[in-house]
Design a protein around this nucleic acid. Sequence first.
DNA 1: CCTCTCAGGTTGACTTGTCAACCAAGGAGG
DNA 2: CCTCCTTGGTTGACAAGTCAACCTGAGAGG
Lengths: 162, 162
Amino acid sequence: MSDWLSDDEQRTWRSVLRMHTHLTTALAQALKTDSDMSIPDYEVLAILSEAPQRTLRARELRCALMWEKSRLAHHIRRMEQRGYVHRATCDDDARAPLISLTETGLAAIRAAAPAHVARVRELFFAALTPAQAQAMREAAEAVLENLARHEPEEPDTAADAA
Amino acid sequence: MSDWLSDDEQRTWRSVLRMHTHLTTALAQALKTDSDMSIPDYEVLAILSEAPQRTLRARELRCALMWEKSRLAHHIRRMEQRGYVHRATCDDDARAPLISLTETGLAAIRAAAPAHVARVRELFFAALTPAQAQAMREAAEAVLENLARHEPEEPDTAADAA
DNA sequence: CCTCTCAGGTTGACTTGTCAACCAAGGAGG
DNA sequence: CCTCCTTGGTTGACAAGTCAACCTGAGAGG
């Protein structure tokens, strides 16, 4: 456990970060020019479009996206202004607004999806053999499990190692 | 080539995205609380600290970071205000400013590095077997090569597939 | 009932990144 | 030399995300 990463680790770590940066940059630009929306826009629309009645409570949407509550509030406000979603108060619980997809929003996601999916395939999956994709998934899931073990707990044990 | 990702692809894709989001969030928070700096701050300091004379031309720094020029200009201005870096005009070419690390900046990166590196190990590498880390690297590099083939070229061939 | 607490959302101020317009110095061609 | 073009940086306006403070309705305990 030295103070720095080994050359091997360094190279791995930097490749992983760069892969993500380049991929999302390319996808974001394509989505912007093709469909005039951002990746977060797309994610919101995709999730809502799969929900029953194409409607979710703010809290459910937040959990699905794993966003902060303020981020969702800001984003939904902007998307409402653009006509993609609609906000309504819920009968059961007056605190929890119901977010639903408008016809405009549904049309937008349907128009955007094919090209976006094609690009994910082209830029990401096409670069990998099935075995590599499999390995990538297993590794990513392992990291996520590891993070889940660390995040909810006290970060003291982590600080010790540093 | 359907209009949507298969379940397998979907799961892989989402895991990869989530891995990155969670990792960087955790690292950013730790870096913020431990050393009061952001990940971009850290990257700038790390690169400058390894340069000869701990100094680089703006252009070289930009290429190393792969940032936009305006992003670098803004970021350097902020870091200069905080005393981490210093800007000087170069004798050879009056356009290209030289960015150098100050003593404060050097002290900051030296103080921050051990804990940051330990966290990368703990949150990322500790979750993976050596074989998985290796697979991750190869896959990431394959995706980067694939992106390099697509980015510089005309995106028309890509649009056809969509 | 009445109050107290708290979960769930909203808002505003601030930070960071992007885009487009601009500026300034170097170098090529007449 | 003088003009023009190109490269490299800066600036300002804007979009997006985070944090902290705040508001509001639901439910528990007296």
